[in-house]
Write a protein that binds this DNA or RNA. Structure first.
Length: 498
RNA sequence: UCCUCCUUAGCUCAGUUGGUUAGAGCAUCUGACUGUUAAUCAGAGGGUCGUUGGUUCAAGUCCAACAGGGGGAGCCA
C-alpha cells in the first residue's frame, strides 16, 4: 500500500549510497572500522591482493581476500577492470606498499571484465594506443590524473570570476554571423544534403528555406556577443565549446575545444593583461592546492618520459618547478616592436638559425620566433602587445600617435613555454567611426553586425577582453604534449570517434 | 593543406647484403606457489608482416599508390 512503485525501483541504490570513496577512506586512520568500497580492479596479485580504484584518486585501496575465505569461482572473476563491491574491516597493512588494507568480509562482482577481451593491461601503454581506446583510458593513472586536474581547472575558472563579480554568460553555439574572422566555420543546416537543395535563381543556396531562415554556423568565438554583455553588466565571461573547421593537424589544435572569454567594460589593455596574468596564476594555484597528488604523478610521468630524450631536448625544470616558477614570477611584457629588436639582435638571427628570417617591423611572428622568446630568451611566459594593425583583427583598438607606417593596435598575446599562444586578447575599438572605417578596409560586412555596432552608438565605453584556450591551459598544467590527451573525446580532421 | 617518419602476435618492439619453418618481453590460457606491490616459476596457444599493385627464381626486407598514425609547418586558442 505504501509507495507501491518503490517496489519497482532499484533498492540496491540504498546499499550503494553507503559506500565510501577510496580517497576518503585512505585519509582515515585504520583501526578496525567497517567500510564498503566500490570500484574497478587495477591488479589482482597472488590470488589474494586486489588493488581497487574508484577514480576518486589514483591511489588504490588494497583489498585483502584471505586465503580459503572465498570460492575459487568468485576469485576467478576478479580480473582487470571488473567492478566490485567490497565490505570489510580497515586495518593497518602488513605489507610495505600501502598504509592500510581492507580485509574483505564480502566481495560482490558488480560487473565482469573478460580478460581475453579487455584491451588495457596493468602496464605502460603508449598515449597513441590509449587515444584509440579513449572510452577506457580514464581508467589509467595518467588519464585519471589529467581529467581530475582538468576538472579542478574548470572549477577554478568559475570560482575566480565569481569572486570578482563577473557574470557567467552563455553566448550562442549557433550563430548567423560569419564575420568574426577567427577561421573556417562548420555549417549548421537542416537542408537535405542528399536531396533537392532550394536554390536561388543565380544557383546559390537559398538559405531562406533553411531552419533559421538564414545561413548559420557553429560559433568560433563568443566575443562579439560577450561585448554586448560587458556593456551592460560591466564584467562577463563565457566558458563554452568553440568550433573551428580548419584542417589543422598539430599537437595544439582541435576542431572542437573549450574557450574562456572574459570581457570587461572600463578596462584598458594593461588592466586586461593584469587580469589575464592574475587569472592564469589563480587557476594554477588552485590546481596545485587541490590536486597535488595528481600533478606529482604527472610530473613523475613526464620526468620518466624525458629520461629517454637526448639531454638537449629535456626540460630544464620539472613540472612542479615549472608551475611554481610561473606563480612566483611576473610574466615578461614587451611590445611587438621590442620583440622584433630582441629577435633581430639574437644569436639565432645572426647565425641564421631561424628558418624564417627576421625581416623587420610588420612581419608576423612565426612559432619558432615565439618559442625563442619564451623558451630561450626570457624563459618564462611572455606577454607581447601592441601588434601591427595589419596583422590583427578589425575590432582591436587602434593606438593613437603611432609613427607613420607603424600603426599598431592594442592587442596582446600570452605565450607559454612548450605550448605557444595560450591567450589572445585586446582592448576593443570603442570609437564608432574608427571601427567602421577599419571594418570597411578589412571588408567586414557592417550591416550584418549592426547589433555589435549599436554598443558603440549607445553609451560606448573603453573595454577589453581575451580568449584563453582551455585545453592549452590543461596541457600547460599537466605537461601533456598532445592536446588530444587533455580532452575526453578529441575532434580533429578525419576523426570524430566516440 | 605541405614536409617528414612510422605501420611485424592483444601491447611494446627485434628481424642481417632480399634466401628454408618470422622471434623476444609483457598480456592471455593451464598448472604450481602464496603477504603480494606491473607478484614469481613452469608449460601452452597466439601472425594474411597496414592494403593493393609492381620488380625478382625468391619480398617482412626493394619500388609505387592508397589507408591509418606520430612529429614539424601553416591557420589559431
Amino acid at each position: 500500500m505504501v509507495y507501491e512503485s518503490y517496489l519497482c525501483t532499484s533498492k540496491i541504490r540504498i546499499m550503494f549510497n553507503k559506500r565510501i570513496k577510496i580517497k576518503e577512506l585512505l585519509a582515515q586512520e585504520p583501526k578496525g572500522q567497517e567500510a564498503t568500497v566500490m570500484g574497478w580492479v587495477k591488479t589482482f596479485r597472488n590470488n589474494q591482493f586486489i588493488a581497487l580504484n574508484d577514480g576518486s584518486t589514483n591511489n588504490n585501496i588494497q583489498v585483502v581476500a584471505a586465503l580459503g575465505k572465498f570460492d575459487d569461482e568468485l576469485l576467478k572473476r576478479i580480473t582487470t577492470s571488473a567492478s566490485l563491491k567490497v565490505t570489510g574491516t580497515v586495518v593497518p597493512s602488513l605489507g610495505k606498499g600501502q598504509t592500510m588494507d581492507l580485509n574483505a568480509e564480502t566481495i560482490e562482482i558488480l560487473g565482469d571484465s573478460d580478460p581475453e577481451q579487455y584491451p588495457l593491461q596493468p602496464k605502460k601503454h603508449s598515449l597513441e594506443f590509449l587515444r584509440e581506446k579513449a572510452h577506457l583510458r580514464f581508467r589509467t593513472n595518467t588519464f585519471g590524473a589529467v581529467f581530475r586536474v582538468r576538472h579542478a581547472l574548470a572549477f577554478a575558472v568559475h570560482k575566480f570570476f565569481n569572486e570578482k563579480g563577473f557574470v557567467y554568460m552563455h553566448t550562442p553555439i549557433i550563430t548567423a554571423s560569419d564575420a568574426e574572422g577567427a577561421g573556417e566555420m562548420f555549417k549548421v543546416t537542416t537542408l537535405p544534403l542528399e536531396g533537392n537543395i532550394p536554390k536561388n535563381e543565380d544557383g546559390t543556396v537559398n538559405y531562406e528555406e533553411d531552419f533559421f531562415g538564414k545561413a548559420t554556423n557553429l560559433t568560433v568565438s563568443g566575443q562579439l556577443e560577450g561585448e554586448l554583455g560587458a556593456t551592460a553588466f560591466g564584467d562577463i565571461y563565457t566558458f563554452g565549446p568553440t568550433f573551428r573547421a580548419e584542417n589543422s593537424n598539430t599537437t595544439r589544435h582541435l576542431a572542437e575545444f573549450w574557450m574562456i572569454e572574459p570581457e570587461m567594460a572600463f578596462y584598458d589593455l594593461e588592466d586586461n593583461m593584469n587580469l589575464a596574468e592574475e587569472f592564469i596564476k589563480y587557476i594554477i594555484r588552485y590546481a596545485i592546492a587541490n590536486n597535488k597528488e595528481d600533478l606529482e604523478f604527472l610530473a613523475q610521468r613526464l620526468a620518466d618520459e624525458e629520461k629517454q630524450l637526448p639531454q638537449d631536448k629535456r626540460s630544464e625544470m620539472g613540472l612542479m618547478e615549472k608551475l611554481d616558477f610561473v606563480l612566483n614570477n611576473e610574466f615578461e611584457r614587451l611590445t611587438y616592436t621590442d620583440a622584433i629588436d630582441v629577435l633581430k639582435n639574437s644569436n639565432y638571427s645572426k647565425k641564421k638559425k631561424f628558418q624564417y628570417e627576421i625581416t623587420g617591423w610588420g612581419m608576423d611572428l612565426q612559432s619558432e620566433h615565439e618559442r625563442y622568446l619564451v623558451e630561450k630568451h626570457f624563459k618564462k611566459p611572455v606577454i607581447l602587445y601592441n601588434y601591427p594593425a595589419a596583422i590583427k583583427a578589425f575590432y582591436m583598438r587602434q593606438n593613437d600617435n603611432c609613427e607613420p607606417g607603424q600603426q599598431t593596435v592594442a592587442a596582446m598575446d600570452i605565450l607559454a613555454p612548450g605550448i605557444g599562444e595560450i591567450v589572445g586578447g585586446s582592448q576593443r575599438e570603442e570609437r564608432l567611426d574608427k571601427l567602421q572605417s577599419r571594418m570597411k578596409d578589412m571588408e567586414v560586412p557592417a550591416e550584418e553586425l549592426w547589433w555589435y555596432l549599436d554598443t558603440r552608438r549607445f553609451g560606448t565605453v573603453p573595454h577589453s577582453g581575451f580568449g584563453l584556450g582551455f585545453e592549452r591551459m590543461v596541457q600547460f598544467v599537466t605537461g601533456m604534449t598532445n592536446i588530444r590527451d587533455v580532452i575526453a573525446f578529441p575532434r580533429t580532421p578525419g576523426s570524430a570517434e566516440f
